[in-house]
Design a protein around this nucleic acid. Sequence first.
DNA 1: AATACGGGGAT
DNA 2: ATCCCAGTATT
Length: 359
Amino acid sequence: MNDPQAIIRQLLAWYDKHHRDLPWRTSPAAAARSRRPDPYHVWLSEVMLQQTTVQAVKPYFAKFLALWPTVKDLAAAPTEDVMAAWAGLGYYARARNLKKSAEAVAEEHDGVFPDTEDGLRKLPGIGDYTAAAVAAIAFDRQAPVMDGNVERVVSRLYAIDAPLPASKPAMKVRVRELTPEKRPGDFAQAMMDLGATICTPRRPACAICPIREHCLAFAEHDPERFPVKAAKKDKPIRAGAAFVAVNPEGEILLRRRAESGLLGGMTEVPTTGWTARENGGETADHAPFPALWEPCGTVTHVFTHFELRLSVFRTKADRRGGLDEWWEPVANLGAQALPTVMKKVISQAIPLAFEKHPT
DNA sequence: AATACGGGGAT
DNA sequence: ATCCCAGTATT
């Protein structure tokens, strides 16, 4: 029971047999023949996978590699292009940091990624998890990889009663104990695969778990009790108005958001501030310019820490844009760095805006 | 230690 | 509705 060597051996054996084939992975067999995966691919995938599901990442990963096959290509790309390509994936600071890191690797390391945890950790957007993951997976370093999946697996394996996130350091100690000298990258991916496919948050498939004989939570017959988490706060509601202006040329008025903060550097239609109170009856009085503003419903969008309700208005009127505003052909909206909430708003005002042949 | 930061899939 | 996801940066 709880023999580290046995856990490692059984987990790696399971991984050899059941590992998932993902675009940024090389198979364990190929890795065994010293065919390491491309560090650029590993880094790109790991950043995209931060708080994001595999299914959501797959098409973005393919798009980025098609647009920018190497880290030097990405470093040379216009930031607006990177933001537009990232649009819809969320957590847009990741895209800004991705570009900064690519520039650092291209300029300071001649396009070669640092091959240690410490070296990787210095790049913007790379924290403890990603530094360890890239070091282990791409460079075969014995680095302790701990993400949400690993936290769940470890908390069950050792029946850790202390709540997250305070118990994180203690869990990291356990991960460090387990991480093997040989095949640390496969071990890390095995732990994450186990968490994603068997040791799931609800109804874990203990019956087919390769390490259940070592699991204290399984022995207690209540694995779902773990990981214990601190209570979370409730979500406030904010409200505002959004304005979709289309001129006679079939162009829509857009503007760029501030570089930092919520949806930083992304594109939006003009909106009022998003007040802290619920539905303040936002009206056309707050429009960016005087016109016949026609109400066309509301859009609700849930962010991590608040829920947003936007009243949408539209007009066919025209006006010159300000410094941070421009008129964009509706047919070209697909190439813009529009976050999902803005696509919802525009679709509300112009139902066919994102179709192949917009009206 | 707490908070800000997207979006979507599973239940 | 609720949870959670191959987390990081800032305060």
